[in-house]
């Protein structure tokens, strides 16, 4: 299947913020190129590496030599700065009118991007969010406790914020470029709760949100994080958004 007609004007810029992803980056880029070429959508991959000491940037340069400078764009930064600023930094040189954000650690599979694009075109959605909680979506590698925390937090969020989207803390999404810029400017939180605020602000600004079920395969390499700090961050963000939006 290939893109045609009105679709051919659309370009999708895929943002990959990285920090110590030397093992995962080549794989994720290979898979993005494989699946995007198969579905025929015009695309570019923007790697925003925050000064990884493990050589992620060198790996990215090799990949740029293989796939070309028009396909792989490097936007490195000196050191680790917030996720929101990473997206802003990446968007500045994005040539696409749509932005896809995803994790580079292989927990998000690039084959879902084509589903996001089809969903976006159905009703011209401003945002399409991947969801682990409905339809064929799900997770791999989570034990009972992890699932309980995830479902409990999600239940509480749905109850208090009624966000109009089933997965708030996921970070696999497609945005219209100008919508993403507006959303980032209106967000105040840092860290992973930033993703939750983005969806809440989207609802507040009356943007339309579509959802696509995704499978989330928890880090095959490296460590997955869910500790006390994350939970406290989450509760604080939840209460803040509850009182202010």
């Amino acid at each position: 299947m290939s893109a045609s007609g009105t679709n051919s004007k659309n370009k999708y810029s895929i943002l990959l913020p990285t920090y110590n992803e030397v093992e995962n980056l080549p794989i994720i880029i290979y898979l993005i190129v494989k699946y995007m070429s198969k579905s025929g959508y015009d695309h570019e991959i923007i790697v925003i590496d925050d000064g990884s000491p493990d050589g992620t940037l060198e790996a990215a340069k090799q990949l740029q030599n293989i796939y070309g400078k028009d396909k792989i764009v490097l936007r490195p930064r000196e050191k680790k700065l917030g996720l929101g600023t990473a997206y802003i930094h990446g968007i500045q040189h994005a040539t696409g009118n749509f932005i896809v954000i995803m994790d580079a650690d292989l927990s998000h599979h690039p084959k879902a991007i084509a589903d996001f694009i089809k969903k976006q075109q159905e009703k011209d959605y401003d945002v399409v969010s991947g969801t682990r909680y409905i339809g064929g979506g799900g997770v791999y590698g989570w034990d009972f406790k992890r699932k309980l925390v995830s479902r409990g937090a999600n239940f509480l969020t749905q109850l208090l914020l009624r966000p109009g989207a089933s997965d708030l803390t996921g970070s696999f999404r497609l945005y219209k470029k100008d919508v993403l810029e507006t959303l980032i400017k209106s967000c105040v939180s840092k860290g992973y709760v930033f993703q939750m605020e983005m969806i809440i602000r989207a609802r507040q600004l009356n943007y339309t949100i579509g959802e696509v079920p995704i499978t989330f395969v928890d880090r095959l390499y490296g460590e997955s994080k869910l500790g006390g700090t994350e939970i406290i961050q989450f509760v604080r963000a939840l209460l803040y958004l509850f009182a202010t939006t």
């Binding site: 064929g136 799900g138 791999y140 590698g141 479902r151 999600n154 239940f155």
Partner: peptide, 16 residues
């Protein structure tokens, strides 16, 4: 509701 959803949370063995 929460326990039901934990119990029915899809395990994506095939995806892995």
């Amino acid at each position: 509701v929460v326990l039901y959803r934990v119990y029915t949370f899809n395990d994506c063995e095939q995806a892995a």
